[in-house]
């Protein structure tokens, strides 16, 4: 059998068994958050890792997804599933409008442009109190149900989130392994050569920006209906930075890197709770340390170190 297929099936089996075996609600919650963060990292990884375009404002799409479903299903009372469609459409539309001028920029200028966009959306969440609940947050997001199936319990939600993650990984792999994926890698490697070969770089970047916005909105939707309370601070500058960090720590241009980044960045604060007031310091130091020692990300960094160790032994 195909080796890749075996790996994928093994991964799905591990997640499925974990969901069945683990009884502790807290652990299930953490793993659900890992799933949501993996979605975020996957989307941004397509943009940063494959297309090579930095975004420091992706928290905005996460927030748009969360607030759209909160308002539509919480305030207006329409079905959350219909709200999901609206949230994704809205997020993609925003990505289109913002991406068109912004993706013409490059390097630090692109970073600053996306940062500015993220901050503006964050401020809108805070200031449009009549819709978003303002700085104090939005209360009253309904729980998800699908026919007789309720996603109230930790376990059902865990499976819902991870099913979506599998779907997203599948989509990402299909895109990477296609003409579009090749063109993305070409833009990342040498943009002017790619353009000279007829790749419409701007349109392609915009496409992938919109795709990652859709994944971000999906994650926002899952987050909102999971925690049932959202506030602007979950989608601010630090949220965007956290997403970038997941991608870079895991290792760019690697679907599994996104997963590893999400695991590390979700678990780290939980592990560091023991440090109490010093939590921030330790978190920041670990972040810096990993980037200084392994700028290519944990996945690649560990593999290289292991290879070097084996060579010496």
């Amino acid at each position: 059998m195909d080796k890749k297929l075996v790996h994928n099936l093994l991964f799905i089996a591990v997640v499925a068994v974990t969901g069945m075996v683990v009884e502790n609600i807290y652990l299930l919650q953490i793993m659900t958050f890992i799933g949501i963060n993996t979605l975020l990292a996957l989307g941004l990884n397509m943009l940063m890792g494959y297309a090579g375009q930095v975004s420091l404002g992706h928290g905005a799409f996460y927030g748009i997804g969360a607030y759209a479903t909160a308002y539509l299903s919480g305030t207006l009372g329409i079905s959350p599933w219909a709200a999901l469609v609206c949230a994704i459409v809205l997020s993609v539309a925003v990505a289109f409008v913002v991406g068109r001028p912004t993706l013409k920029l490059s390097g630090y200028y692109l970073g600053m442009g996306t940062l500015g966009f993220g901050m503006i959306v964050h401020i809108l969440f805070r200031e449009a109190g009549s819709i978003t609940g303002g700085a104090s947050g939005f209360v009253g997001i309904p729980m998800l149900t699908l026919g007789p199936l309720s996603f109230e319990g930790g376990r059902n939600y865990f499976y819902l989130v991870w099913t979506v993650v599998f779907g997203a990984i599948f989509l990402c792999k299909r895109i990477i392994d296609s003409k579009t994926g090749r063109a993305l890698a070409a833009i990342h490697g040498r943009e002017n050569a790619a353009v000279a070969l007829g790749v419409d770089a701007h349109a392609l970047k915009l496409n992938i920006f919109m795709f990652s916005a859709a994944l971000g909105a999906m994650a926002g939707f899952l987050y909102a209906h999971f925690v049932l309370f959202i506030s602007p601070d979950s989608f601010g500058f630090m949220a965007s930075v956290k997403m970038v960090t997941m991608v870079v720590i895991g290792g760019m241009a690697n679907v599994w890197g996104a997963l590893i980044g999400a695991v590390v960045i979700t678990l780290l604060p939980e592990v560091l709770h023991g440090f109490a007031d010093h939590e921030m310091i330790v978190f920041g130091l670990i972040l810096m340390g990993v980037m200084i020692v392994m700028p290519q990300g944990l996945t690649q960094g560990v593999i290289e170190r292991y290879a070097r160790y084996k060579k010496r032994a």
Binding site: R174, I175, K179, T180
Partner: peptide, 12 residues
């Protein structure tokens, strides 16, 4: 690239 017709949705 320019001679292949399938696009983003084709890939998916």
């Amino acid at each position: 690239h320019v001679r292949l017709k399938s696009g983003f949705w084709g890939a998916i």
